[in-house]
Design a protein around this nucleic acid. Structure first.
Lengths: 191, 191
DNA sequence: GTCCTTGGCTAAGGATAGTAGCTTTTCAGC
DNA sequence: GCTGAAAAGCTACTATCCTTAGCCAAGGAC
């Protein structure tokens, strides 16, 4: 039995490839094993469980998204940065429609995943700090930002928007709501 | 073997009870059969498959939500109605946190479920018509409404908002963004 | 060259969805 | 009331998936 040269990272990569090709519901240990050219139980040398594999994939997705969002806001500020962040968020979903399904919604109990999520949140908080938002008001603004971005992204990833009307325009309206709303929250903070 | 007196509706009710009690991931035919006091294969007399059962539950949830939203906007118009709709949307999630997880995001292929979803959409479209929104602009506005309401609701249902900051305030900001945004879309339509 | 860690394997067990085919209940129609 | 058929149960079985247990070979450290 020649070694397949697997590793935790390689298994995660295969899992992501499966998700991209066949959707998140196709991600089973059997499917991973088949692609890796290995018997299913062998995967347990690299992965604790299927849930653990899911967490690894999610951590990868969150980190990848954080990179993109951070790059997008880099060198920008205020509404310009907010628009860039929203654009990057949606671009990610368009690039990898199936990956967004593993994006964690509940606060993750897996520490690595939680750390990745925190680093993603930091990007948003840095953006909001540019508006002078701190503390309580920053929390409200972050919740709004997250709700809007996630709401649209999850619906788009799920294929909810069927009508022929231009999605870019819809998203521009949504982005405009958000920038105006953040300005409002910042004004309340100043008051 | 005395009859248990099951029916498709009774099975759906049991499924909903399981979701309420234990979450959507606990909904299995075995669990339903146990509560119904029946062997698992017997359920196939009332249900086509587990996916079919899911669709029935989803149709129930969508119809229930439509009733609540329709009642909330009744007798109101414009921003007053929008605020009432948003409030009712969130109240539903608070009432039945586990049920929202079966809310269909992708356009359902099950005809009954699709019909229920259409009737829910009608409530939103009627609301938007009050703003003078029709056609393309109504589509954009409906997408915004849906994204915001769904984004916040799905995150809240998943338990995403952990911080002690008052959620009502966050949601009020979000609602304010939406009413302002709809006004903007309506203004663009008038232009 | 030997030894130990590592990464494979097969075998097996438990949960779940679903099918096949049988039996009993129930009830409509006579 | 009897009868016959549809409806609603059942057991037995298969397939898929996750997971554990325990064995064996590969391959590097010394």
């Amino acid at each position: 039995m020649p070694r397949a040269g697997l590793s935790a990272a390689a298994v995660t990569d295969i899992a992501i490839a499966i998700i991209d090709d066949e959707g998140v519901e196709a991600l089973t240990l059997t499917a991973v094993a088949k692609r890796a050219g290995v018997a299913a139980p062998s995967l347990y040398k690299h992965v604790r469980s299927v849930a653990d594999l899911h967490d690894h994939v999610a951590a990868h997705v969150v980190a990848e998204m954080r990179e993109r969002l951070a790059a997008a806001v880099m060198g920008r500020s205020l509404d310009d940065a907010t628009r860039a962040l929203m654009r990057a968020y949606r671009d990610y979903v368009i690039s990898y429609p199936n990956r967004y399904a593993v994006f964690p919604q509940a606060p993750p109990r897996n520490p690595d995943l939680a750390a990745a999520a925190d680093r993603l949140l930091d990007v948003a908080l840095a953006l909001l700090r540019g508006y002078g938002l701190e503390g309580t008001q920053a929390v409200h603004a972050a919740r709004c930002l997250r709700s809007v971005a996630h709401g649209f992204a999850s619906l788009q990833a799920a294929g909810a928007f069927e009508l022929p009307e231009n999605l870019d325009i819809s998203y521009d309206y949504l982005t405009g709501m958000l920038t105006d709303g953040i300005a409002r929250i910042a004004a309340d903070q100043a008051a």
